[in-house]
């Protein structure tokens, strides 16, 4: 499965690139990624919440990078869902902003895992990635993922519909905090 998405962020390419290249930032805006740990200059260890409750982990390596322009990576070893991705950073015509173009490729296996992954992405798998990029834009342009009362959990907004009512959170709900 190949997913593509793009957004424009009103920051210079060097800044957007630097944020993404610090891979440990990715869970801030990528809904399915729980944690990325840097294990070497080009290698990292990823964990994601699997739809059946168990965490999936894999290793990844950066295959190619041009500072300020491009990062390409792929999973290594025996990943449950082998995957690869490329993100390109292009100057927008306004001379201020950066276009972010992402391509993700998932090699979805058969069996239980494959079914679970397919269910997770749902009927419109690209939406997940669109929302990820919207949050990346929020973080870089405004400093944080924006929370509303109806959608206070940050990364989970899309998954919860109908949402909680647009009224202030109770103390118990507030204590849960936003998803990171």
């Amino acid at each position: 499965m190949e997913l593509t998405a793009t957004t424009t962020i009103r920051k210079p390419a060097s800044e957007v690139y630097a944020y993404w290249r610090d891979l440990e930032n990715l869970p801030t805006f990528m809904a399915h990624v729980e944690q990325v740990r840097t294990t070497g200059s080009r290698t990292s260890h990823w964990s994601a919440a699997a739809p059946f409750g168990k965490n999936v982990t894999w290793d990844a390596e950066i295959l190619d990078e041009d500072p300020g322009e491009k990062i390409a990576w792929r999973s290594t070893g025996n990943a449950d869902v082998p995957n690869a991705g490329t993100v390109r950073f292009l100057p927008a015509p306004d001379g201020v902003s950066t276009e972010v173009h992402v391509v993700l490729i998932y090699d979805i296996p058969g069996g239980v895992i494959g079914k679970a992954v397919a269910k997770y992405f749902g009927e419109e798998p690209h939406q997940q990635l669109d929302d990820d990029l919207r949050r990346l834009k929020q973080v870089l342009e405004t400093g944080e993922v924006v929370r509303s009362d109806g959608a206070p959990w940050g990364k989970r907004a899309r998954k919860e519909f109908p949402q909680r009512p647009a009224q202030p959170l109770s103390d118990a709900e507030l204590a849960k905090g936003a998803d990171q």
């Binding site: 919207r134 929020q138 929370r147 109806g150 959608a151 907004a157």
Partner: peptide, 16 residues
């Protein structure tokens, strides 16, 4: 930046 505040690109968590 273009003063089109009601079209702000960041303040709607349900933008999708």
């Amino acid at each position: 930046a273009a003063e089109l505040y009601s079209c702000c690109e960041n303040t709607n968590p349900n933008a999708g």
